[in-house]
Design a protein around this nucleic acid. Structure first.
Lengths: 196, 196
DNA sequence: TAAGATACTGAACGAATGTTCAGGATTCAG
DNA sequence: CTGAATCCTGAACATTCGTTCAGTATCTTA
């Protein structure tokens, strides 16, 4: 790899990291390009050299997040034997990774904006569908194995999604330990709620 | 009441209604004063005649919301006999009133802004504490009556809060029927999760 | 009915924001 | 070593937004 390519990749990463942190912290609209330049030392122009636009940068982060999250999950998934264990593992990864679900405030806020390009809207819809589908599969496994009551797996997938999104918001200003406790308690309740 | 006073009150209400709808729909930052003038026909200046600022308008709406919500709740509360019934009633009012919890996206977004006045921040913290306290009391009643397992009522109050906040976000683009179904299912799970 | 109070208008302003662009610096290929 | 490619800068631009204010219309009061 070139020195040029290396440096380019490094700045790209530096910008992405700072932007991610800011978006999570302040939300999409409230984070300005200048906030990002302040945090990275890069110039405005440089950000637009590496990313198409603010929207593009945001979508890039979402994509990256999703990929990372799934990769990490797949490493762990084998080690869990029951659906209940998987559920706890799921919650723990949620907390430990970033104390924030990708579908959090920033995304929701981004969603309601009116001037999105249609391809970006498609991408977002796809992501939501993927998350629901992931949840449904997790729940369906438990139903099939007899751990959970047979029932509306799709509906429960939405409930789980709601729970996780809500937890990330409620826990945003909590300590790691508090967050872990709350998540664990929430999963406890959810599991008892759907257990046979 | 004067014709002047009447008209003044009417416009005030007209502005508040439009603003509430827009804040819920688009979020705090994304809703401009001009959006509100477009929706009401009033001029910008007129909004600043009736409200101190955009922040002031928002806080006014929150206050109003909380008062209305509690008033409506207290009308109904007598008719419920068990804590479980109360819980379902709670969820239903949540959906029917506005399909949105007062502590929703807009508030959370408002929260992370950096330029709030300190008295407004106090007011917000107070509101959050009130909601948690409301939830805890609801749960404690169920524990006392033997409907729910004895346990961490405070922790469960946060879980319930998270669930409700998440539900409002997930249901934002759903039909009324879908929303009611999802909320009901969520409360089902939550109740089974903490039942004796 | 006259004077004052109240309700409202809309142009103007300053601050902030996303984006562009002409050009400078650094590195690569031949 | 030289020209081209790549990486980066920062001033400039066009918009948008919250807020103000001088002035007008409408109503109240005496």
């Amino acid at each position: 790899m070139n020195k040029k390519q290396l440096q380019s990749e490094q700045t790209r990463k530096r910008v992405a990291d700072a932007a991610r942190q800011l978006f999570v912290q302040k939300g999409y609209k409230a984070t300005s390009i200048e906030d990002i330049t302040d945090a990275t030392g890069s110039s405005k122009g440089n950000i637009y050299y590496h990313f198409k636009s603010k929207e593009g940068l945001f979508i890039y982060l979402l994509d990256e997040w999703d990929r990372d999250w799934i990769a990490k999950w797949q490493e762990k998934e084998h080690h869990y034997t029951s659906a209940a264990e998987k559920m706890y593992g799921f919650a723990e990864q949620m907390v430990r990774e970033d104390l924030n679900h990708p579908l959090t405030k920033a995304v929701d806020e981004f969603f309601v904006g009116d001037d999105k390009t249609s391809d970006i809207e498609e991408r977002l819809a796809e992501m939501v569908a993927n998350h629901i589908s992931f949840n449904r599969s997790l729940i369906q496994q438990g139903i099939d194995s007899g751990e959970f009551k047979p029932g509306d797996a799709e509906g429960l997938a939405y409930v789980l999604e709601a729970l996780v999104i809500g937890l990330s918001q409620v826990s945003r200003r909590a300590s790691l330990q508090q967050a872990l406790d709350t998540y664990r308690l929430a999963i406890d309740v959810f599991l008892h709620g759907i257990a046979t």
